[in-house]
Amino acid sequence: MITLIYGGSSSGKSAFAEQYTYDLPEKNKYYLATMASLDQESRERISRHRAQRCDRNFITLEYATGVDRALPKVEEDSCILLECMSNLVANEMFSEGEIKPADTCVHEIIKQVQNLSNGVAHLIIVSNNIFEDGAIYDEATKEYMRALGEINEKVAAISDAVYEVVVGIPIKVKETEHENS
C-alpha cells in the first residue's frame, strides 16, 4: 500500500506525514531520510524534523540515493515514511557530476518506489509541489521539474491514498477502498 502526501514548502506536510504514519497499525515504523546534511540550513531542517518525531519511535535510515537499499534492514510488516521525493530526485539527478536525464531518473526512482512498496506493508511518500510560481527556469532546473512532476504523477497513480496539505490541513485528493483496510 502506498500513501502520497503532497504540498508546498512549509505547508505542514511533514508533520502530517509523521502523524499519519504514527497512527498506522504497523508496529515497526521507519523514517527513510534522503536529505544530505551538507550546509547549515539543511542541518537545521533535519534537526527540526528530528525534534518533530523524537517521541514517536521511528527508526531512521539514511539513503541519499537508491532508497530501496533500505529493504534488507526492514521487516515485511513494517511501514516506511520516505521523506522526501524532491530531495531524492535532486540527489539522483545531480550527484554524479553530470546531470542524469529526467527519463532515467523517473524510471529508476519509480522502480525504487515499487521495490520498497512490495517489501513492506505500507509506504508513505512525502513530495513537493514546486510547480506554481510561474517563473522561467534554466534547462537543468526544468529537467528536474519534469522528472519530479512525472514521478509525482506516477506515484499518485499507484497510490491508494493521496493527500495535499495546505496550511497544515490535509485535503484528501485520492482515495481507494484499500486505505486503512
Binding site: S9, S10, G12, N129, I130, F131, G134, T141, V167
Partner: peptide
C-alpha cells in the same frame, strides 16, 4: 500561498517562504 514553487536561490527568499508557511499553519 507562496510555498508552491522551486526553492529560491536567495536565502532571504527561502526564509520568507518557510516562515510565512509556518505562521500560516
Amino acid at each position: 500561498e507562496i510555498g508552491n514553487g522551486v526553492v529560491p536561490i536567495d536565502s532571504f527568499e527561502r526564509k520568507y517562504r518557510d516562515i510565512a508557511g509556518r505562521i500560516l499553519i
